[in-house]
Design a protein around this nucleic acid. Structure first.
Lengths: 385, 385
DNA sequence: TTGAAAGCGCTAACAA
DNA sequence: TTGTTAGCGCTTTCAA
């Protein structure tokens, strides 16, 4: 048993034939005498033969593995994305591996045919710094990425298509995303429908940070003729001293941030803190839309810790459709982005790319309001402070 | 750009030298004239050369990748195990991939050097059905596995060692686990210390199911001369009709259970239901130890939904050290198994195995009580029903 | 129906 | 210091 495992050559020798016949027999492809085939199969069995997948991959120049590269292992939303990927990939004979931490430089040594990046920021960074050297197809799921020039130019090119040739844009990657602007609209419409007039947007980033979700909020508020919209942005400063101290868990695990732009965000903790800031600033909103569900769960926790009732005193709404909602009462009302479907779509786009088909540059996936109990319906909308 | 990427041969040709020199230059190993080396590096740069990791793996007969095979993608505990693995593996130059769903038969096609199984049950099943044919080293993290003959015989062989030869036991795999009996003791000691006399054990499995945690509870209760210990087992029947209906989330994702013995357990949902069963059965315990943290969070949720206060009316305690604790108030008191350390240890054992070192058959990792707010301290321990 | 032969892209021993 | 050579284990022509 200690010795190395059998190869097709070993089988061929015992069967008194050649490797190519053995290969055909094992893969049942091509001609091979029935009797001989049986003998080969039997010998393979006896030898506990198992093909070497690495050799097959080298020959076929295809591993049939793809990777979901995702830093936020903690976030259930990403795990839901991953779940969606698994099925979609299996349908086409691929495996999806997951990796949350390998340095970008080492990523190129992964034995995969393509990579799905957690979000656009990561994808752009990767491509800019490492991607040019070898074109391993990459697809990105979008999620709260920062809005910049690149983003602007991208928005105007939604119908651009890709093939396996180098993309035309500078650092562009096909992305699968949800239309954040319409999502935000859905959230705000719902709250207004429930009677809320003053609506805040809670975000874990500084107010000036131009992430799409904040931008979408401002844009929608603008449309609604709210002039002091910026006052309704409830931002958590990255350096708020209470951040570390506020952790609910004794932390025996030091957090390590390796890439400057990729932090393992504690959305929950920031949401929790945001609730305190809301009170300190005496914001007069009757409802808060959180940056994402994790953040919103933190908001609920924070409000409750201050003795406020959700939704009687303050309504909270999220964005994502994160299954972690189940843990918290009241059940969070949210706009679900159906991460599973988004993940599945990422896989389809990536596999199309790998297989040389043309793919759309931007693919939009669906969303839907999921009612919970965290928004006061038809509220008389009295300020609480 | 469309054409296939450059190889060492391409570089060699342009540099007017041979592949081996190129190889040495690129890997900076062995002799190569300084000037020539520079030229080679430059050409490689120009050609956007990137080595083919599959070819390297074939040659080296090592992928430097290992896999964490884990079905319960939903459970934060497993993600914590995974996080621990990442660092430990990086220390030794390995990547850890994660996969949650590939069928066992396809697992052998994975391009990895070894596999860590989520728990002993999975590992045993895998080895029994697929593992014999090719010895891909496997290590298992233990967690609530079912106690059987195998397990008994294993316990008596803790000091057995393994090498890459076929293990001596029938379907045995090195495991990295925490001593469940001592963990249970720690939990019960703490509750008694807090004044609790009647302690229940909540489990998502039928009462007869001999999983280690239930067994440990019974064993410890027996030691404490509690004769009706079985009456304090709060079990959820697999077929309780309320299970499906009780889900807090609109479920657009149908759950698929592929392997009979591997179910994507909804521990939270079962814990929630268990709280109801507790009330229906009018159990007179003043504290409940949940099977694991997820289950215990469900218990808290369930009790609160019935208008009971935790811990004033009923104390709840968990086992695991699952970070999902942060979501729920009151903060769950638990015995942490330090999943990150357990995961790291799994990796070390697996890599030792891969590298041909002898490894212990069973490796125990540490645990510790983590106080939260879900247990009433020094309770007068009045029954609530 | 078979099997020899030429790779896939890289490593490493060895002779030069 | 260099280059030739022989693989790693498998697939796939193509001539027999």
């Amino acid at each position: 048993m200690e010795k190395k495992s059998a190869t097709r050559l070993d089988i061929a020798r015992r069967a008194g034939t050649s490797v190519s016949v053995v290969s055909r027999a094992l893969n049942n492809s091509g001609y091979v005498a029935k009797e001989k085939k049986e003998r080969i199969l039997k010998i393979a069995e006896e030898l506990n033969y198992a093909p070497n997948p690495v050799a097959i991959s080298l020959q076929k120049r295809r591993t049939r593995q793809i990777l979901f590269y995702c830093r936020n292992v903690d976030n259930a939303f990403n795990m839901q994305l991953y779940k969606g990927m698994l099925d979609a990939a299996a349908d086409r004979g691929y495996m999806v591996l997951f990796n949350g931490k390998t340095a970008f430089e080492d990523l190129r040594n992964t034995l995969v045919d393509g990579i799905i990046m957690q979000d656009q920021g990561l994808a752009a960074y990767y491509l800019r710094n490492y991607g040019r050297n070898y074109f391993l197809p990459v697809v990105s799921a979008a999620y709260g990425e920062v809005l910049g020039e690149e983003k602007d130019s991208e928005r105007s090119a939604e119908s651009r298509t890709f093939s396996r040739t180098m993309p035309s844009g500078r650092h562009s990657v096909p992305i699968v995303e949800v239309d954040t602007y319409r999502v935000m609209e859905t959230a705000l419409d719902y709250l207004e429908h429930c009677g809320h007039k003053k609506i805040a947007f809670g975000t874990p980033y500084p107010a000036e940070n131009g992430n799409v979700r904040t931008a979408a909020f401002l844009s929608r508020m603008h449309e609604r003729k709210v002039k002091d919209a910026r006052n309704y942005i409830l931002a958590v400063s990255r350096r708020d001293s209470r951040l570390a101290a506020d952790s609910r868990l004794l932390s025996f695990q030091e957090e390590v941030a390796e890439n400057p732009h990729v932090v393992n965000e504690d959305f929950f903790g920031k949401g929790r803190l945001a609730a305190r800031i809301f009170a300190e600033r005496k914001m007069d909103a009757t409802a808060v839309v959180g940056f994402n569900d994790e953040f919103s769960l933190g908001l609920i926790c924070g409000f409750q810790e201050m003795g406020l009732r959700v939704p009687e005193d303050i309504s909270v709404m999220g964005i994502d459709g994160n299954d972690a909602r189940k843990y918290v009462s009241p059940l969070l009302t949210t706009v679900s982005l159906f991460p599973q479907e988004q993940g599945a779509m990422c896989v389809r786009v990536l596999l199309d790319l790998i297989e040389g088909k043309k793919v759309r540059y931007v693919t939009h996936t669906g969303f839907r309001l999921l009612e919970g109990e965290s928004v006061l319906p038809c509220a008389s909308a009295a300020g609480i402070l």
